[in-house]
Amino acid sequence: MAVNSTVRPAARLSESTLRDMYWTMLLARRLDERAWALHRQGRIAFHISGIGQEAAQVAAAFAINRGVDFVAPYYRDLALLLALGMPTTDFMLSLFGKHDISSGGRQMPFHWSFKHLNVVSGSAVVTTQVPQAAGLAFAVKYRQQTGMVDPQDTTQPRLALTCLGEGSTSQGEWHEAMNWAGVHKLPMICFVQNNMYAISEKPHQQMAVANVADRASAYGVAGAVVDGNDVLAVYDAMVEAVERAYNGDGATLLEAKMYRLTPHSSDDDDRTYRSREEIELWKARDGIPRFRQHLIDVGVLTEAEAGDYDARARAETDRAQQEADAAPMPAPEEALGDLYAKGELD
């Protein structure tokens, strides 16, 4: 897809795609809220939320070749994963510690892994996925340069997208990853979801510059800042980064500014470090009602259809929870499985 410089990429999105994006954001919100409720009911041990970040995540997913391009996500990426094709029920299974695709109940929820979607398993140690994403992008370039794949082959991964929060960019391995991306001109997109908080710490406690993306030039990669609550703006910025990667023009450090509307996790009390007024201010900028209003304004959705979406999202959340509820728990001995893979010499 060639970029027509006179038309923004988001303007080329079909009505059905726009609806699909809205639906995914909405479903992520409802599932996330349900997880909070289940935690309050004592039914799940842990929740870590992506509320307030859905718009940016859905935009990012829709801009890549979903299910084919490599993705190394982070724990707040519920909406991103839904957009990539994670089954709703699988999310609920993971909350209950049942046989989810990601880890078979071994990992805490939100440690996504879907091999059939080229979503690579991650840990809870922040930023570890970023230099691994450099390795994924290195592999993409390696296969192209050694003639193993055609760079235009859309059935093959052509980039690696990785996500992280702004706090994670303080880790040394973030520097190493960005340096690799620059030195080797890798088809990588480092998508920083700057939600203004690393648990309680604010961006100025992480860095002495205004934006994470200000550091891009130091690594010899492209950098951009975008309003993370504006799904179409993020989509435009992400498409630019995707084109850059697909064309062999290197990596992008894309920073979406947004706000974490919930506490860090189910074990956090955010009243100790931020005001209710601040949260209300950002709720008014929430990307989901904003996109809903936009779609109504441009005639893609009617009020009645939007109401129908709300009902469907709740119904799908109920359905997924019931299905996961009915699924069996893993056998205790499954703790011993999958230690070593069997190889050609075994």
């Binding site: 690579v120 570890t128 691994q132 994403a133 296969r143 391995e173 190493e176 990853a177 690799w180």
Partner: peptide, 20 residues
């Protein structure tokens, strides 16, 4: 590689996951 052991291994992990 750049003079950085962490990413020698981490890039290796990513590449291995990608079946190199």
């Amino acid at each position: 590689s750049p003079l950085a052991e962490l990413s020698i291994v981490a890039v290796g992990i990513g590449a291995a996951v990608a079946d190199l």
